[in-house]
């Protein structure tokens, strides 16, 4: 059996699922790490120190990309659900979505990379 060669819709749906699960996993981890404060400052400060490493800075950029993609794709799906007649333009809508993604992601990514480079990562 081979991978089904669906179009744009199949891959946008796959990424929607992946980014959704990814963001959910992050939220679970985030709830756990903030809960560490209940065990006192030692473990909490330790995890916060890790959050300030460049590696986590890069992971934060990936997190931002996942949230942004999931949000924009979600809006596209909502538009299609409320206005089924827009389905005739679904490819165009996806390209507009990705253009918006690039427009927002690239400058934010540059700012976040700048923070990492300058060691200003909060």
């Amino acid at each position: 059996m081979s991978i089904y060669r669906g179009g744009i819709g199949q891959w946008s749906w796959t990424f929607h699922r992946l980014t959704g699960v990814g963001v959910l996993l992050f939220l679970l981890v985030h709830i756990l790490d903030t809960a560490l404060i209940m065990m006192g400052p030692h473990w909490y400060n330790k995890i916060i120190r890790f959050y300030r490493t460049p590696l986590f800075g890069l992971m934060e950029i990936a997190l931002f990309a996942a949230v942004l993609y999931h949000a924009l794709n979600g809006v596209r799906i909502i538009v299609i659900d409320f206005r089924p007649e827009t389905t005739v333009h679904y490819k165009k809508m996806f390209f507009i979505q990705m253009a918006l993604f690039a427009l927002i992601f690239i400058p934010v990514c540059i700012i976040m990379l700048g923070h990492i480079a300058q060691g200003l990562h909060p």
Partner: peptide, 21 residues
């Protein structure tokens, strides 16, 4: 889930996702 595979697969060119919507 508005995946649109149905639209691409339909040999009769039916806008299936629109009909479902």
């Amino acid at each position: 889930r508005t995946v649109f595979n149905c639209v691409e697969a339909c040999p009769r060119g039916i806008n299936v996702t629109r009909a479902i919507g």
